[in-house]
């Protein structure tokens, strides 16, 4: 870990301005991802701005019948919220499929969206990695890639986004609310929030320097059967090889987003029309153009089967 300075922000706009102004500054929320990365010198911020005191930890109803989740709401509290459990059960399940009780007590909504990849080469500072050190190359291509992306990847990076929560947010059509360094607020649909790696895998979201997440909003409930299925090498405390967040209505229509397969939660709305015809029909369309490696081609079969499991569960 490199030495750094630290301050507590008092208002969201002030926090955003401070990060934009100070070279090498970063926000810190729960710290469960950032501190780990700092210890390994994968992240080396020179200044930390603590956003925990910004009063962004409420969950409230929105005027259109949805929910507004403060950026600092802890994963534990979000998963346990009665409204979330009743109307957005897929979100609650996704959260509880992730990390551990202790980590979820600290982890925040915004921090979870911004957690970084678990690509093993990203973590090994002795290895080239375009995401950690732009231009140095990608060790995962031709390397150990079992965990990595099968679709939406590029010649520069084949990493996945590791979040479970974000996959549920994607299937729920959430919106990310932010405040920028100039004090302007904006709303970003979750579909546009995470970027594909392209030639700049180190730029992972559309956030501008200093832009602070203030909340994530969910539209009004869509009903249906909610489930989150996560398949991993260990039954607990591991990141997804493949996960599926699904909402299925009585008539068999529904939606599905996939985790563990791409640089962002992966959802192809057009494929969802095939839902009544079964998982394979949906998965075939969702993964059109997939480019798995020889080590992770199994994810395509696994994704289709995991969705089939979710659909069977919905019918049961």
């Amino acid at each position: 870990m490199k030495a750094f300075t630290y301050e507590r922000a008092r208002t969201p706009a002030e926090a955003a301005a401070a990060v934009a102004r100070t070279p090498g500054a970063k926000f810190i929320a729960g710290g469960t991802n950032l501190l780990d990365l700092m210890k390994l010198q994968i992240e080396t911020p020179r200044h930390l701005i603590d956003v925990n005191g910004l009063n962004l930890d409420e969950i409230e109803k929105t005027s259109d019948g949805g929910l507004r989740i403060g950026a600092l709401v802890r994963n534990t509290d979000l998963a346990a919220d009665a409204r979330v459990r009743k109307d957005y059960a897929v979100l609650s399940r996704a959260l509880l499929a992730g990390a551990s009780g202790q980590l979820r007590n600290k982890a925040t909504t915004a921090g979870n969206l911004l957690q970084r990849t678990r690509c093993p080469y990203f973590y090994d500072t002795a290895q080239p990695c375009n995401k950690r050190q732009p231009g140095s190359g990608c060790s995962a291509i031709g390397g150990v890639s079992r965990q990595l992306a099968v679709i939406g990847s590029s010649d520069a990076c084949i990493a996945t986004h590791p979040s479970d929560m974000a996959v549920a947010m994607r299937v729920l059509d959430a919106t990310v609310e932010t405040v920028r360094a100039d004090g302007q607020a904006r709303r970003i649909p979750i579909a546009d929030f995470h970027r594909l790696p392209g030639t700049t895998p180190h730029i992972e979201t559309v956030l501008l320097p200093g832009e602070l997440i203030t909340a994530v909003t969910l539209p009004k409930p869509v009903g249906g059967f909610h489930t989150y299925r996560k398949v991993r090498d260990r039954a607990s405390y591991a990141f997804a090889l493949v996960s599926v967040a699904a909402i299925v209505q009585k008539d068999g229509r529904g939606r599905a987003a996939f985790g563990g397969v791409a640089h962002r939660p992966w959802r192809v709305e057009a494929a969802e029309a095939a839902m009544p015809s079964g998982a394979k029909a949906v998965a075939d369309q969702v993964f059109t153009g997939a480019k798995p490696t020889h080590e992770n081609a199994f994810k395509l079969t696994l994704a289709a089967r995991t969705l089939a499991g979710a659909l069977a569960e919905a019918r049961a």
């Binding site: 870990m1 490199k2 030495a3 210890k39 010198q41 500072t125």
Partner: peptide, 8 residues
């Protein structure tokens, strides 16, 4: 912390 930082 000093040992770890210097090792890097």
């Amino acid at each position: 912390e000093q040992a770890r930082a210097a090792a890097a």
